[in-house]
């Protein structure tokens, strides 16, 4: 019994300490972005890695998500004889929800894991210590450029996801299932309002921040050796994905 209480206590203290450290990490990241945003070239390099190199996977996911939405939406709407509303259904689902969330999850798998692995390897090979011994703040070189790059890249990727997804839905709905092309776009234009678009953008911005925050944090405090880095990378992907989904719920309830 005593051992059980001790184990629960140990876990709780460790968990709370970890949360506090994560919070401090985020605050320091904000402070460093404000004071030392880093070299623009490094930020561009990171945008190329996080944004441009994720384009293929994002476009592919978007096309098939839009096509599935076209199929499922047609199936549901046909029951009410409202196939003409397919454009609205596809666009709202993508712009408000699936675009930001799925593009963020794709970037998490591709770039979030790589961010953790890169920083983790620098930690275990003492490269971060080397920066510190040179009286240089590692945040300026490793964390802030990734933060800025992720926050800029995610909304752009999300916008591309939305457009490709809408055309995916159009391909299936209009070309395959025979929905009126005019109705598809006209209904969409009529019902999608500015509020839908900016809620998607706000979500993307915050997801970009979560990806960089968790990815950098897990790498920065990676354990020892190759096993420590591999564990940090796994934890980073799992924690980022869960945080994105939970945060998405709260953000939706605020922005709705």
């Amino acid at each position: 019994m005593c051992v059980l209480v001790q184990a629960i206590g140990h876990f709780t203290i460790g968990y709370v300490r970890d949360l506090g450290r994560m919070g401090r990490f985020l605050l320091k990241s904000f402070y460093m972005i404000a004071c030392h945003p880093g070299n623009p070239r490094t930020i561009l390099k990171q945008m190329r890695f996080i944004g441009t190199k994720s384009l293929f996977v994002v476009v592919l996911t978007a096309a098939f998500t839009g096509m599935v939405l076209g199929l499922q939406g047609y199936y549901s709407l046909a029951k009410f004889g409202s196939e003409g509303m397919l454009g609205t259904a596809v666009a709202l689902s993508l712009i408000r929800e699936l675009g930001p969330v799925l593009s963020a999850l794709m970037v998490t798998g591709r770039a979030g894991s790589a961010i953790t692995a890169e920083i983790g390897i620098m930690r275990i090979s003492e490269q971060i210590d080397a920066l510190e011994t040179m009286a240089l703040d590692p945040f300026k070189y490793l964390v802030t450029p990734k933060f800025i790059a992720a926050v800029i890249s995610l909304p752009l990727l999300c916008a591309i996801f939305d457009v490709v997804g809408i055309y995916g839905g159009w391909l299936v709905g209009v070309k395959l299932l025979g929905v009126n092309p005019g109705a598809y776009f006209y209904e969409m234009e009529k019902s999608v309002v500015w509020r839908d678009i900016y809620s998607g953008i706000i979500k993307s911005l915050s997801f970009g921040m979560i990806i960089a925050w968790v990815g950098c944090y897990k790498g920065y405090f990676a354990g020892h050796g190759a096993e420590g880095v591999s564990r940090a990378t796994t934890e980073s992907v799992v924690l980022t994905s869960i945080t994105i989904l939970i945060w998405d719920y709260f953000l939706t309830s605020i922005l709705l």
């Binding site: 390897i121 620098m122 090979s125 003492e126 490269q127 210590d129 080397a130 510190e132 011994t133 040179m134 009286a135 240089l136 703040d137």
Partner: peptide, 19 residues
Amino acid sequence: LNRIREKFGMLFQNAALFD
């Protein structure tokens, strides 16, 4: 701390070069 660290140079065991 950085002001004091500016007096130092360090050669790490595995050199810790930026790879």
